[in-house]
Every structure is written in structure tokens, then in C-alpha cells.
Design a binder for these strands. Sequence first.
DNA 1: GGTAGACCTGGACGC
DNA 2: GCGTCCAGGTCTACC
Length: 307
Amino acid sequence: MMQGSSMDIRLPEDDEFDLPSAVCRYGFYLLAPNVWDKATATLRRPLHVPSGPVEVVVGQQGGVLRVVCDRRLRRGELFQVRRQVERMLRLNEHLGPWYELYPAARRARFGRLFRSPTVFEDIVKTMTCCNVAWANTVRMNAQLCELYGGGAFPTPEALAGEQPSRLRQRTSLGYRADWIITLAREVVEGRRSLEKLETRWPSAMYLLPQLETIHGIGPYAAANMLMLLGCYTDVAIDTETIRHCREHLGWPIPNGAAASPQWRRRIQEHYDQYVPFQFLAYWYELWMGSSLEADDTPSDTDTAAGA
DNA sequence: GGTAGACCTGGACGC
DNA sequence: GCGTCCAGGTCTACC
């Protein structure tokens, strides 16, 4: 049992928060340094505070999240831990409208998609998802944490001083090493502010142009980052999306059409019926295996019957 | 605006 | 064990 600081985060009474659902519905929870303990339903990982990395364990006891650290922290550092936990679990995100529109999502506790404690980590993780099999994504993140974070996820400072060629040599990142070092240097040298992207209730119109200036962020990665920043209007279209549209929606998308602008537009237009929750609706279909409109959108008949 | 090819790695497969 | 092919998203050059 860890001996250190701890705190309770009280969940809103009307919130139907469920920790396993908030963590395990998005694959980032499987990437280092995150560790999900299924037996105890707790999330463990190191977080950065000014005095160095601190290992934290997050568990849920009814309407309270209990956060336990492996060492004593100053009050200000404890607050920083809280902010990072809140970000990972999207505790400050208001999903009421989503649940009101789609009761099936509420019943399934489907709405909070796990993310990282920092925007930097989210961007790097998204880059490691691109053009690579999942097993390699897992490997890349493990290597980054082991070699540049001492077990924690590396900070921009830890990566900015490294040579891209050496990062390539030591990890499986390949050409992504250049993108990651470039981003880390931009952040450290003050040429790029990632905090700016965290503006409350941003719109895609505001965020997309900024995301697209990051080297290594293309259409898929930008849409994925929008989702991670709390803006769900764009669907991150990859080969999995194409497979889903073929198998679930029965669309005759030919092989090799994954990058076709025409199909991309058609996919986005299809999910635009769920505005402003296009990504959530798509992800719900992908994970739950059923579409929201099939059994959930209240019809006029239902409403009339209910009345 | 759309398209083709290079980029890089690991896994699968055939020899 | 070795070589070849393929999957995966982004970038760049070209039309």
C-alpha cells in the first residue's frame, strides 16, 4: 500500500460517472505509462509535478474518486495532480446534451473517452497511432517512457534536446521521431502554445487551422485531436472507419479508396446527422456494435405514445 | 483540388 | 535465416 498524499474528488450528484467506462472506451489507456488494473478497477500512472514524477492510483468509491500518491506532495502539487486527473477523465466536460439526445449512450455510460494529462502527450500518442499497427504504437510509447521519461511520459523538455536521428535509432518511431522532436522544440522555445488549444468549448473552425500547422498532423490526426480537445464534430477517418462503413453500414467502398476525398466527405456527411457529436456517435457504433439511430433516437411516434 | 509515390517499421509469408 | 510483400497516415511534388 502506498504511503503518501491522497485526495478525494467528489463527482457531481447528477453525473453517472463510471471509472471503468471513462477509462476503457478509448485505446490510449493501453499505452504507457497508463496501467489499468481490471481486478481492482483502478488506473495507475506517473504524473509530472515540479518536484518530479509521482505515481498515482485512481479508484472510484461511489460518488467519489480517490486519488492516492506514492509520496507526500505540497498543496500546490496536489492541485496539479487533481487537474491532470480531471483532464484524463474529462471531469469538467458537460455531456448532458449528448446523454439527453441518446439515452442508450447514457445507459451504456458511453461518452467520456479517455485522454492524457497533457495536450503534448495526446499529440505524441496520436502521432504514434499513424501509419502503424497497434502493437507498434504500444511499443513506441513504452520506449518513450522508458528512455526519456524514467517511467513517466516524457516532457517536451526531455525530448527537445535529443537529436531526431538518435531518437530514431533508439526507438521504433521511424520518421515520427522528426515530428515529435520538432513539436517538443517548438513548445520549449515558446514558438507554440499547446495550452491555447485547451480553450473552453472550442470549435473546429478555431482549432483545426492551429492543429494543421503541427508537422505530422494530417486529416486523421487533426480530427482525433479535436476529439481529445473536447470537440466532436469531425470523424477521424482511417482504415478502421472504412472497414466499419463496409461491414456495419454496408457501403460498397472499393479497396484502396480509404484516402478518396469523395468517400471521406460521404462518411463525414453521414455522421453529420449527430451534430455536434459526430465523433462520439461514430465511436459508439464502433465499440457498441449498434448505431444510435437504430434503437435510440426518439421518434415522433414514441413521443406521442409517451405523452 | 486531386493523385502518386516516398517515408519507416514490424509482421506475415514463401523459399 | 533471408528476402519480399503488405498495412498504416502524412508529406511533398506534380498535374
